[in-house]
Amino acid sequence: MEQINGLTRGSPKRRDFLVAAAAGTAAALVLPRFASAAAAAPNASTYPAKAFIQKTEAATLQAMFGTSTVTASPDVKMDAPDIAENGAVVPISFDANAKNVTGAAILAIDNPFVMACAYKIPAGTNPAISSRVKLAKTTQVISVVEVGGKLMSTSKQVKVTLGGCG
């Protein structure tokens, strides 16, 4: 049995966060017919829907980036757990050591649809994003970044054991 030494309560950021959270609570639900009023609402037509219904890595990348040629690269770093504590919430983050990254995607090969999420990264934004995804079962997770129309990636096996007790 693994026993960690001196895990202190809560995460160090939690307290700061609780104070900060109050600032950002005023969000409005805007129904479609009022959408014109919300100038900032994103344009749904830009959604690459085709990329989200593919069942293979190659087809997903082709639909998303227009190419399925991808090179494994040590310049793409990914942080994903070895064993997911719950498949419904798996923290995944990537960090690319590259300039002029324009896009990125996270793929889970054994999910019903391979694509989990994708990003368009404008100049000035760092190619490092953390998010939480669902994994249906133990799977290879791939982080892909797009640089000058070419794709680089890194991958990791994440074990998913669904359990109820704890």
């Binding site: 693994e2 309560r9 995460s11 704890g166």
Partner: peptide
């Protein structure tokens, strides 16, 4: 006092995920 963190005292992988989630 660490007992309030329950299962996370016993698995580094889980406690790492938890810390990320607690952000």
């Amino acid at each position: 006092a660490a007992y309030v963190n329950g299962p996370y005292n016993f698995s580094k992988s889980e406690s790492d995920q938890w810390k990320q989630i607690m952000e």
